[in-house]
Write a protein that binds this DNA or RNA. Structure first.
Lengths: 200, 200
DNA sequence: TTCTCACATGTTAGTGACTCACACTTGGAG
DNA sequence: CTCCAAGTGTGAGTCACTAACATGTGAGAA
């Protein structure tokens, strides 16, 4: 079986499966009994691994709940969006597009996760950190388009503000999902910002 | 000495002193040896109290480093600012004024604290949480000015974006304080946002 | 003054997240 | 078959944080 491109994607697949198993059982338990009331010992047992193995896959208990694979997607979409337009608009569209994509297959998971974060203070901090990392990614990727220091600041500020707006939308959605779906809420949030900027 | 208004502000003052002592020694140790390398036990010993007492004054180790008494001030300034103007402008001015005030007496402490947060991932999460709380305060305080649901969203979005902008300014300042003082950096950040919103 | 209550603090024994050093198992290559 | 390496388990330990209970010390009532 040496014909498959990589030396041993056997192991890779097994590791991915273990990872998914841990994360799946963790989320299930978090939703069932709450984040704090769930010990990593339980998660490990449910996934059929030892505590040590749990920590080899996830650096902290928080990471299992707050890690998002979407950051990379969003960052790429922003990068690929057309230059020239106002940056806030580009980010708005990238977020909208990326979330619609995620939404199509993982709506419930995204909702569950966001609600869990919303009700667990410890996870909120981790969420913001994740966002900060994504923002830095985007700023670094886009800083090629500009050269001067003022442009750099403009970039950072625009990205930060855009993410703040999107986060409001996301939290509002998680708090009351029956009042409208996420892509709409994103649009509404950005619209509300434009509106407010003009007439206070 | 019973003429002083309250029954026993003696105790109050002593508690305040203990609190300041703990916080002072904590910050000193954090700056000397780093946040992670400083055990609560050391802080307590330095302040001459037990570990238990430490936790009675501060719910977590993070709180000693990331707690800011400025939130209340900022929130009040925003509330008191003139209605009618665009909200982002009001928050900008309130932040500017409040920080200038803090700045006059506590510049170095503010810088130290911000740098500590900047270099300690665990504290960044706490910082964002603090900001979220302040934002909610402001939104609640100002939601009297508006009634409808759209106005509420507008409020939340404007406040979140404004704080995001201000935070960029603060972090930039902490990363390179020699490139300009904080109030200026705040102005520049808001200016950079306006600029970027128009010409991308 | 003295008794006593309230409140701040200390002590001890935990729990749970997370780490480190080391031993064991097992699939795959020579 | 043997040896290597990667994945995993074990056990002991650190540190943040908590709960139950004991102690000391002002302050007001008797």
């Amino acid at each position: 079986m040496t014909e498959s491109g990589n030396k041993s994607d056997w192991r890779e697949r097994k590791k991915a499966a273990t990872r998914r198993s841990i994360q799946g059982h963790a989320m299930r338990l978090f939703l069932e009994k709450g984040y704090d009331a769930t010990r990593v010992e339980e998660i490990a047992a449910a996934a059929g691994v030892s505590i040590m193995t749990f920590f080899r896959y996830f650096p902290t208990k928080e990471h299992v709940a707050a890690e998002d694979d979407y950051d990379f997607l969003i960052a790429r979409l922003v990068e690929d969006s057309a230059d020239g337009e106002p940056l806030v608009g580009r980010i708005h569209q990238a977020l909208r597009g990326g979330l619609a994509q995620i939404y199509a297959t993982d709506r419930q998971a995204l909702l569950d996760r966001t609600r869990l974060i919303l009700t667990t203070p410890a996870l909120q901090g981790r969420m913001w950190q994740n966002q900060a990392v994504t923002q830095q990614h985007i700023v670094r990727a886009l800083s090629g388009e500009t050269v001067d220091k003022d442009g750099e600041l403009r970039l950072k500020v625009q990205v930060a503000a855009s993410f703040a707006i999107a986060t409001v939308a996301m939290l509002e959605w998680a708090a009351a999902p029956e009042e409208g779906e996420l892509p709409d809420r994103i649009d509404k949030a950005f619209a509300a910002f434009d509106e407010g900027a003009r007439k206070g």
